[in-house]
Write a protein that binds this DNA or RNA. Sequence first.
DNA 1: AGACCTTATTTAATGACGTGATTTAACCTC
DNA 2: GAGGTTAAATCACGTCATTAAATAAGGTCT
Lengths: 410, 410
Amino acid sequence: MREHVTPERRRGTVRDLRRDNRSVLLWSLYFDQPSTRQELSRTTGLSPASVSNVVRELIDEDIVSEAGAVDSDGGRPRVLLRINQDHGYVIGVDVGETRVRVELFDLAMTERARADYPLDPREHGVTTIVDRILEGLSAVLADAGVGPSAILGVGIGVPGVVEQGDEVIVHGQTYGWDAVPLGRLLRAGTDLPLHIDNGAKTMGRAEMWFGAGRGAQHAVVCLIGSGVGASVIAHGRTHRGSTSSAGEWGHTTIMVGGRECRCGAQGCLEAYVGAEAILDRYTGALPGQDEESALAALLDAAAGGAGEAESVLEETALYLGVGLADLINLFNPERIILGGWAGLLLGERLLPRIRDAARRHALRHAFSETSIELGRLGPEAVALGAATLPIELFLNGETLLPVERRRSAG
Amino acid sequence: MREHVTPERRRGTVRDLRRDNRSVLLWSLYFDQPSTRQELSRTTGLSPASVSNVVRELIDEDIVSEAGAVDSDGGRPRVLLRINQDHGYVIGVDVGETRVRVELFDLAMTERARADYPLDPREHGVTTIVDRILEGLSAVLADAGVGPSAILGVGIGVPGVVEQGDEVIVHGQTYGWDAVPLGRLLRAGTDLPLHIDNGAKTMGRAEMWFGAGRGAQHAVVCLIGSGVGASVIAHGRTHRGSTSSAGEWGHTTIMVGGRECRCGAQGCLEAYVGAEAILDRYTGALPGQDEESALAALLDAAAGGAGEAESVLEETALYLGVGLADLINLFNPERIILGGWAGLLLGERLLPRIRDAARRHALRHAFSETSIELGRLGPEAVALGAATLPIELFLNGETLLPVERRRSAG
DNA sequence: AGACCTTATTTAATGACGTGATTTAACCTC
DNA sequence: GAGGTTAAATCACGTCATTAAATAAGGTCT
């Protein structure tokens, strides 16, 4: 990743100061469009004169446009400013268990093109995935009629642990990937700036930017699907830890000596509340071929009064609540967001019971400061969140121009 | 706390830039004394000219002194710089379960005076504690012959959750304190700038600044005494969460439906590895009046081959390892430091077994990136760590002068 | 001892920046 | 269209970090 950030982000000269001020202004404008110079002066704390200067610069660079004015009541009207959504584009890639999806967005995160590639459930080979991604990149570029030089960057959400560094390495424990240098493999097929991250983390970004997490500084986004992951946000930024593998909530132990988990340990949370585990604990028959319809059927059975289904779900709510309580105690977030396809299904029916179990297992004070909510973006948001990775660099003024890219690639 | 920080730390003008640069220079010098202008230029990334300017300013303010020079091999010798350790003093307070300790340090963290007040085990009344603290402040000032105006600030480590805000509130679940406005109560008796924080967190600071955590950016310091706490450091800074109660590791659930914990929940880690809980699980007789000697006796019994003692400890190592694995999975630290009097006792004998249990319950990748070590400062470091709170503000250039203090107090 | 070399630090000149004060612009009401 | 009002741009100023040049402070060599 580093390779696409200007080397050694400095912070000490007057020019760095300008870059930073420009950046806070862009962030402010991005999340509160349209806005006026006045308002930006208030929200950024910069003087009106500085806002004027920076905005002129941004307009000259075709990043910001003036767009109308607000009605005045006796004075010069305030001019509305907005980010030019066609100044550049970003691409988000969702590498899931069942498909690869590639989406192209403009700066306003409006989808401009999409490509979908279903995966054979047993076909997770690295080269297959790499080919699909590269294919998808060309497809969405062609489809949207956008040239590569207009692309600010490509965000890629993948399952498994992503180790950031000079070379991005992906460890997909449950995916069959072992130390895959995904960045290098893709680089052979494209010059676009790549940003690879764990899918749960990109999903979390999406909820934080555009979903249930908006406005929160400290939050945890829980992703429950077949497996279980989480994205921890502290001070508005994803917590990565020393090698970017933080947030592996699913393999937290909630029952010493408990059920075997596919990670090899015993008593992991995932072995109780992951969709696969829930279905596994239920001995009755369930219709539906895939996990998604099976879990829905289980929920329906419980609603219909089926005893065992009911008790499996009751237990699930307890375990999930315990898992959330651990997050509350350790991270003291202001908000917990339950997402992922299974998380949303379960939350819809069990949220009160889950909340109650969390309350019983968390410290009073921390629990009372936390709200537990459902995600708002659905499980499709992985690509959207991945696309925010290059957006973030852009807003920070860290995006290289295509010319510079070529230089740094050589 | 806010009240003693200049209101609204800005970041946008050239003057802020200077404050920041001055701050990075001070931090660098503080942890690498003595140093030279050259070296500081390298470590801070500032130009030699800027270092010269800032250093001259610091010398004029009597914060830094020149102290000798390094031998040269043919050129002008480099002048050694060090922080003037008598430029100001800080006070650290440790409010423990059995005593209140107040220590006065100079800027080099050399202890200059100390006052100890044992507490009656059942005498945790707020007014008693407040009186002891105030008494201790006067005592160490008198003892060290230092006037209040030379004190940069007072750091106070207390048991329980400390809610930072305009008014500092202490919730001491196990201490019998309920929403105590400790800051306000102390303010009635002293004008000194106060910084209150959880004792586990201040202890963690001490290890990070001067102990086993030096140099780490991501670490967790575990404090095991009668109860269990932790201090999580991410990117070099203590993780506080939205209301500063993050890091309550002790009440993480490791066994759904397990042993009752004094917090009211079941299966908390503390109910298995806290000293009180360990002793409680052992049915044999143990000599010694206090927990400390009892635990030592239990360890000796096990070393002597006593079957039950051995199995209780074996179990303890397992549970503790599980607790550490949770931390590894969630935070992905580069280092875990085991501290607290019980943690040190247990670690001494059980560390290999604890490590092994952690390995079995953590994800491979994250575990392999983490080292698990014992604390180096002993359980006495709470006051030392608390005293680093005002030091931090000082290094950041956020300490008010006594004159300004009075203004802001009125 | 003195000429010369080497390295550290300071000084001087320069360019960039943010800000408050001052102008100018743009719209309203009467 | 004159006067009032608010927004935005411009100007003059002070601050800052940096580069290049100058100076300080010690060596070495003859």
